[in-house]
Design a protein around this nucleic acid. Structure first.
Length: 381
DNA sequence: AAGTGCCTCAACCGCGCGCTG
DNA sequence: GCAGCGCGCGGTTGAGGCACT
């Protein structure tokens, strides 16, 4: 079974390219042009797979590549484009002349994804929360590895739950934020209210710490024990048998910051198992949330990737992703599809930072491809 | 100074899609 | 309609080097 190799690999060189190989490839392409990658290495006299040649050319040897650090403008653009397009690096790269999808992907995974907290920071607060953690002594100065993030308990792959994305949530967050106690006995029904208004209106209700309020469509609201003026909106599927599964957004009230509840906040969920590639026990998985969020992808694609076993992409970027997805999910689960700017302005309002504004819009506008790109061009690119 | 842990990024892998015969 | 091929994409890996103990 399985697909036959793209090319005959026996006797072919792998690994890093030497300067000589680069030179051969460059000269060959300059003389003969791009294309016909399969036959190229043979014609050029390279002991390389055609795929490898193509990658080397596209990612490194091409003349129009812009080497060096990403500028602030480029970073901002990547962040915004990623919010709109998701992990479609080729589309993002198309908006950044001289940058390759691979380069952007790497940069995102190693740098930008760490700024997850900043996209939620309140207006006027320039210092990203993450940046303060080390200073606060909450986290060790030691770098946090992808492996550690993926597998904080040093469990083997086999021991890990299938989807450990949410475990990425970092010990530091646990230290920063208290646990939200689940409380099966404290569910207050607030039926009859309509979403999205119900969420806004529910803010008027005084909640006790740990108290759950049942809202429209099964949404639940729980008081944030960490900040008095924040409440957490839980999706309809996220309180099952008294267990709060997963993370959700905090609904900001006037003049307060928008926040995120971390999986680690939820005692009982253990931060694990709340996210699954499949909809299990009524919990939305990633793939589904992607579709809901408007970043439509083939849901069957790459199902074999297996959530918790991801490598580079499964680190902080996954955390970032999980936050975004949850953000989206909360919308989708709490609101019917017809809500529009009215809700956005009433509940979101001017106080919200614009970091993820595209993703807000995209929920209303399930565009794809060219339409989306032209829309982006019109606004900023 | 040495050892260890972690990060970065170039390269690889597998899959899907479009084209062609 | 189908199969094979070539290409492109996104996820993943691992060597090299840096940071920390």
């Amino acid at each position: 079974m399985g697909r036959s190799p793209c090319c005959e690999k026996v006797g072919l060189k792998r690994g890093r390219w030497t300067a000589e190989e680069d030179d051969i490839l460059r000269k060959y392409i300059e003389a003969n042009g791009e294309g016909s990658w399969r036959s190229m290495p043979k014609n050029a006299g390279l002991l390389r797979c055609g795929k490898s040649c193509r990658l080397r050319w596209i990612n490194y040897l091409r003349g129009d590549l812009k080497r060096g650090n990403f500028t602030t403008e480029e970073e901002d653009l990547i962040i915004k484009l990623h919010a709109s397009l998701g992990n479609r690096w080729s589309l993002i790269a198309a908006k950044l002349p001289g940058r390759t999808d691979n380069e952007i992907k790497n940069y995102w995974n190693s740098h930008l994804s760490r700024r997850i907290h900043t996209f939620l920071r309140p207006r006027g607060v320039g210092q990203p929360v993450m940046m303060n953690l080390a200073k606060m002594g909450v986290v060790s100065k030691k770098k946090i590895s992808r492996l550690t993030l993926k597998n904080p308990n040093n469990k083997t792959k086999e021991e890990l739950p299938k989807s450990s994305h949410s475990e990425v949530v970092l010990a530091s967050e646990k230290a920063l934020r208290p646990t939200v106690k689940k409380s099966n006995n404290n569910i207050i029904s607030t039926q009859g209210k309509t979403t999205p208004t119900s969420i806004c209106e529910s803010k008027e209700t005084t909640l006790q710490e740990g108290q759950l309020m049942e809202g429209h469509d099964g949404d639940h609201v729980v008081k944030d024990p960490y900040q008095d003026n924040l409440k957490v909106v839980l999706g309809p599927r996220e309180v099952t048998q008294g267990v709060i599964n997963g993370i959700n957004e905090k609904v900001p009230q006037e003049g307060e910051e928008k926040g995120v509840v971390f999986p680690s906040d939820i005692e009982g969920s253990n931060g694990v198992g709340a996210f699954s590639d499949k909809e299990e026990n009524g919990v939305w998985g990633f793939s589904e949330e992607r579709e809901i969020s408007g970043v439509f992808r083939d849901s069957n694609k790459r199902t074999s990737d297996g959530g918790g076993e991801n490598g580079g992409g499964g680190g902080l970027s996954s955390y970032m992703e999980s936050c975004e997805m949850t953000y989206h999910s909360s919308f989708s689960s709490s609101m019917n599809s017809s809500f529009g700017d009215e809700w956005t302005s009433s509940c979101v309002g001017e106080e919200w930072i614009d970091m993820d504004w595209e993703s807000v819009l995209e929920r209303h506008l399930p565009w794809e491809g060219e339409e989306l790109m032209s829309w982006l061009e019109e606004f900023q690119c």
